[in-house]
């Protein structure tokens, strides 16, 4: 009986440590509430290229607000991202299409780790680090991979069923946990989002 209790304690301790590891991988993205990150953004969809400025403000632990601006001024998009939905504040008429907005929500929600908030996770260790898998949808899994040295998420992929629908990566300022660059690429069609922190 004592032995069983001890094993239970060990299991709980193991799960707790794994969860802490998984959460700590998010440092570098989630800054204090009300802080704003400014990024230079490039989006390529098939042959169409678009660039602009992206402002990201953390509203609380699980919500961020995104504002996209043309470099030459006018606002193109303003939306809040929640773990399972988005709220649109403004969209330039040419980008105001539900499917496109949903794709942007999925992509930025993945990159800024909003979609995985309050979701179940499982952790798998390997020689070089560990992977954390979240399931934000029935068939969707988002897998973040961290290296063992920095303990930060450096790359990942989104799975739809058994196939990879997109892959992404983070680049950090040397010796810090601050992300300087991130990129997400869809695989079934050409769509690449890249963000460079200013």
């Amino acid at each position: 009986m004592r032995c069983l209790k001890f094993i239970n304690c060990l299991i709980i301790l193991f799960i707790t440590i794994n969860s802490l590891h998984a959460q700590s991988g998010m440092t570098g993205l989630f800054n204090p509430v009300d802080s704003v990150g400014l990024y230079q953004m490039n989006i390529d969809v098939e042959t169409f290229h678009f660039s602009g400025l992206l402002l990201v403000k953390r509203l609380n632990d699980s919500t961020i607000r995104l504002v996209m601006n043309s470099e030459m001024g006018p606002k193109l998009l303003d939306m809040e991202l929640y773990p399972s939905r988005y709220k649109l504040h403004y969209a330039f008429p040419k980008v105001n299409h539900k499917r496109f907005l949903k794709t942007l929500y999925d992509d930025f929600g993945t990159l800024f780790q909003v979609r995985i908030r309050n979701k179940n996770l499982s952790v798998e260790h390997s020689q070089n680090g560990y992977s954390t898998t979240y399931s934000p949808g029935k068939k969707t899994q988002i897998i973040y991979t961290a290296d063992s040295l920095s303990n930060l998420f450096t790359s990942g992929r989104v799975m739809e069923g058994t196939s990879v629908s997109s892959k992404f990566l983070y680049v950090f300022e040397e010796g810090t946990s601050n992300i300087s660059f991130m990129k997400l690429e869809h695989l079934p069609f050409t769509m690449i989002i890249s963000l460079t922190r200013l």
Partner: peptide, 15 residues
């Protein structure tokens, strides 16, 4: 910008 350059017809980019 620093990363890439692209040319388009003025009519294809309304903004």
């Amino acid at each position: 910008n620093n990363q890439q350059k692209s040319s388009v017809s003025a009519n294809s980019n309304k903004m």
